[in-house]
């Protein structure tokens, strides 16, 4: 009987498929352990019934209730904080974009002395501890009358989001191939046309990533908001930190964390989908 030989490429394909399968399973397990389990624990802790504590040896809470959620909504200013957080974040993101775009263009497309030093200096607000930055900046904000002020908070959040937006946009501008710009110029494109047809579509993925980072940084910013904003303004993190500090209360902290987390996760999923389809295609389709 003639033995049929399996071609080598088939063996390689099979091995690759198996490896891919293992990697997918590994990735799913890691995601469940890394993200799913903490989320699930937060959900359970937020639903603990105060009359039936969740204690050893119970694996899951024996009774669930919405008492912890009710408590947070009743005894904290969470509704007002939600309104403030979600008003500041989009405005801060737009403001950051407007300030970062021209700076990123210059840093990404022009060569001048001290350019690398500036790029490092931009990262200072995220290198320094948040409270240290907040304490120094609060003096400046207070001096110019921008503490306890909504615009002051938008500006403060923009400053904290600026390193992300600026670094990502700078890298995006740097990555644009000079050939495309030269070709456009040869075909008579004006500065406006170049900007509209080349720069903007090609930095869009970076812009989108920067927007997400800036938006989330704003939503999670605590130190500066606390020092220059409270007592006039409270945001979600200022309430969350009261449950996380010295007097850590797991159940209430779980509720506020979920309030902060759920809209962000939803937004990330939407953004991820949008980013993959529209902008990457728009940007790299021209290369």
């Amino acid at each position: 009987m003639e033995q049929k030989l399996v071609p080598y490429y088939r063996i390689v394909e099979k091995r690759q498929r198996t490896l891919r399968g293992i990697m997918v399973v590994f990735f799913i397990v890691v995601q469940i352990v890394w993200i799913g389990l903490p989320m699930l624990m937060a959900v359970f802790w937020s639903l603990v019934n105060p009359d039936h504590p969740w204690s050893y040896p119970q694996v899951f809470p024996s009774h669930l209730s919405l008492a912890q959620w009710d408590y947070v909504f009743k005894f904290t200013n969470i509704i007002r904080a939600l309104g403030t957080s979600y008003s500041i974040a989009p405005l801060a993101t737009i403001f950051t974009f407007l300030l970062a775009l021209p700076t990123a263009y210059v840093l990404g497309r022009r060569r001048f002395q001290g350019r690398e030093a500036i790029k490092i200096l931009i990262l200072l607000p995220i290198i320094m501890p948040g409270m240290v930055t907040a304490l120094f900046l609060s003096r400046v904000f207070s001096f110019i009358g921008l503490d306890q002020n909504f615009f002051g908070l938008v500006l403060a959040h923009s400053l904290m989001g600026m390193p992300y937006m600026l670094r990502i946009l700078t890298t995006s501008f740097e990555a644009i191939p000079q050939d495309i710009i030269d070709a456009a110029e040869n075909l008579g494109a004006t500065s406006f046309v170049k900007f509209k047809e080349i720069f903007i579509p090609m930095v869009l993925p970076g812009l989108f990533a920067g927007t997400i980072f800036t938006f989330i940084t704003s939503l999670e910013e605590f130190s500066l908001t606390f020092v220059i904003g409270t007592p006039t303004f409270e945001t979600i993190p200022t309430i969350l930190f009261s449950f996380l500090g010295y007097h850590f209360i797991r159940t209430n902290a779980a509720v506020v964390s979920l309030i902060l987390m759920i809209p962000n996760i939803a937004m990330l999923f939407v953004a991820e989908r949008f980013l993959k389809t529209e902008y990457l295609a728009a940007a790299f389709g021209k290369m």
């Binding site: 304490l135 606390f226 409270t230 009261s242």
Partner: peptide
Amino acid sequence: GKVIMAEGTATMNKILAEKDKAVGTI
């Protein structure tokens, strides 16, 4: 009246940051 719930160390930092102001916020 307004009650602000805040982590104690952060509150102390805010108080110290505003210490030299003639009129603080707390």
